[in-house]
Design a binder for these strands. Structure first.
Lengths: 145, 145
DNA sequence: CAAATATAATTGATATATCAAATAAATAAA
DNA sequence: TTTATTTATTTGATATATCAATTATATTTG
């Protein structure tokens, strides 16, 4: 017998990340309507390391190069990021935060902290560890050749 | 201090469902290149209950009405589904599987079983229960008003 | 019943996801 | 060093995600 898809654990995994994203986006919208959850991630990653290439950013947020190109195009259009020539490797760009991007990143910090804390209310450290262990097992099962 | 986003549990949740979908899609492709993971879900749900309205289908697979309309349009174009008048409520449609859709659903059954089993190899029943409990807590935290 | 409201589905606009093909620059190999 | 290969990014095509507006039909209310 094939169980209904709505009763599998994958359904719950998908639902949980979608609800988290919806919740997080709602709170980010209070700060700006021009910032998505993924844009926020990109701001944090680039602020932390301005040497990231676009494809490295893509690896960090699980998007392919084409998506990253277009997301960064948009973030530049919206004034959060800036693309400059990369001195050492002219295939790449040096992507940095504009003053507006830096300002926005600061405003996002407490929102993101709140989002994560609220979503994990009542979930113990031990449970988070369990969760991580199991999810890593699933990832390994799906990615091993 | 704000932890790097790549170290949060949400990152792992997102990664796990993406890897599962990638893995599942790869195996579905062996049967047909015209069927996505979501299309497969829709086939199973409709086969199980041909009285589902499009918006009910959307609720089941976490998509809004616009996405469902377009996905079903495509599945009809590809010959898997069929839309008929709904006798009791003329705002709705009665959506059913064509012979090709039924055939495909049969072929998908073992693939989906394999996908789920393989992704959960080495994960005990108890762990799945733990996972479900924690994810439900996160969902509840994110959806409670 | 008639008007107001609610529901189901569609459409349009913009952004993202994915794959394939194309560019351009760097690196390896002959 | 010239050629071949690899790497980084972009672009095009098609599908999906999301929101807002629209249409058609049902239901509720006055």
């Amino acid at each position: 017998m094939l169980g209904l898809p709505s009763r599998t654990i994958f359904y719950l995994i998908e639902r949980s990340i979608k609800e988290y994203r919806r919740f997080a986006q709602k709170n980010i919208n209070e700060l700006s309507h021009d910032i998505t959850v993924d844009h926020a991630l990109i701001l944090f990653f680039i602020a932390d390391n301005p040497n990231l290439s676009q494809s490295e950013i893509g690896n960090l947020i699980f998007k392919d190069n084409a998506s990253v190109t277009r997301m960064i195009d948009l973030m530049i259009k919206n004034g959060f990021l800036q693309r400059d020539i990369h001195k050492e490797d002219r295939r790449k760009f040096r992507i940095t935060l504009t003053p507006k991007g830096l300002q926005t990143k600061k405003g996002l910090k407490s929102i993101v902290q709140f989002n994560r804390a609220h979503a994990l209310e009542g979930v113990s450290e031990a449970e988070i560890d369990q969760l991580a262990t199991i999810l890593e097992k699933i990832i390994s099962n799906c990615t091993k050749t």
